[in-house]
Design a protein around this nucleic acid. Sequence first.
RNA 1: GUGACCGUAGCUCAGGUGGUUAGAGCGCCAGGUUGUGGCCCUGGAGGUCGGGGGUUCAAGUCCCCUCGGUCACCCCA
Length: 413
Amino acid sequence: MSSSAFAYGTAAWQHVEATLRDVLARFNFSEVRTPILEPTELIARGIGQLTDIVSKEMFAFTRGDTNYVMRPEITAPVMRAYLQHHLDQRGGVQKLYYIGPCFRAEEPQKGRYRQFHQFGVEVIGSDDARADAETIAVMMAVYKAFGLTNTTLRLNTLGDAESRPRYKAALQAYFEPYRQDLSETSRTRLDTNPLRILDTKDERERTLLADAPHLIDFVDAESRAHYEEVKQLLNDLGLVFVEDPFLVRGLDYYSRTAFELESPDLGAQSALGGGGRYDLLSVEVGSKKPVPAVGFASGMERLFLALEANEVTLPGTPSPDVFLVALGDRARRRVFRMAQELRDAGFKVALDLRGRSMKAQMREANRQNAPFTIIVGDNELEQAQAPVKNMETGEQTEVAFADLRNYLRDHVT
RNA sequence: GUGACCGUAGCUCAGGUGGUUAGAGCGCCAGGUUGUGGCCCUGGAGGUCGGGGGUUCAAGUCCCCUCGGUCACCCCA
């Protein structure tokens, strides 16, 4: 099995993570790390039994009398951790973020992998519209930090716990006369989960959607007021969004605000990230009292795809400060020790480990983009000094072994 | 789970209708420069043609099975 994380290179990966952490820190989020294995029950209850993720995409196994899953997402685990470790007792709103692997047993394709990585935030303990707006703002800030601005932010409200059943009933009433025109999957969904028909890609079904009832018309007054406030706050921040009356999310725990960030550069899996408010999740996973919360989740691999498409340059393999070239067995022995001495002094030092020719060592130094080489052979051992070669200019300076660290300190940038 | 396409050197790929020693570019190694990289020239190493079975005088090429990959459906990060 290949790894998408591997494909982009560790240096690029670390750079992207560092940028992420920097943005998240500016919004005053702190990192949480939760286990990869979670009880199946938590995930199933949190995300919803009827969702695709739970019903067919989980890597799950049983050991003893416990059922485990490799986490397919990280919101439910974070909520579990919040409750289990009594984070509410810390007082105030908990602003948490995560970066880590997730697992879904799907057919892999572009932007969709069995093991993938999500980053995201959870703002737990506030039902204020500003929590929603800040969640969206930090998500947008992340992509802006990478220079990704050709994105579309879509926004909708799902209403409260009662709104959805009302809307569901209305949708069923609307589609029932067209039952014969629907695809087979849409027909079963009409009975089980009609909201899922809304994001169909089937052309015929999409034309039917044009006259379908809008969720917003079935949403309770309080949720509508909340939605208006979120939109106002986003406008205040100058964040551009489009309202999408058919935006529903695939996880059951969402209520009120729902949003998705799309990129044209990702292929069929066009969502960079998405999220929303999930005031109902805490009770679903065992809390006695409801804990209002809002968050988003994004795909690291999709971020990389977008960066690639927008030709954002990421750091490659790091270069050493100096490459030590050795000629002959005695020199090799001395140089091996010299490497240690220079490393102790804080320099990044590379050297040949295969006993190769000088030419090969020089070529290797060049390939590794070492700015300096130090060439050591029998003569140098006699004199206890060696030429330090500037690989860009080709100039060489004789430096006593004892002065090498000072010389490098003054010349390595 | 369904469908389409693809698996040939380390990498990217070429190899009409089966035909004898399977090629290129890049990379790698060496020499040209008896202790100096990048550019150039010359040479070299490196291949169970994804795997198994079959058809045939003969299979990288045709057939069957199988494994893997890519993309799409679906779903979502």
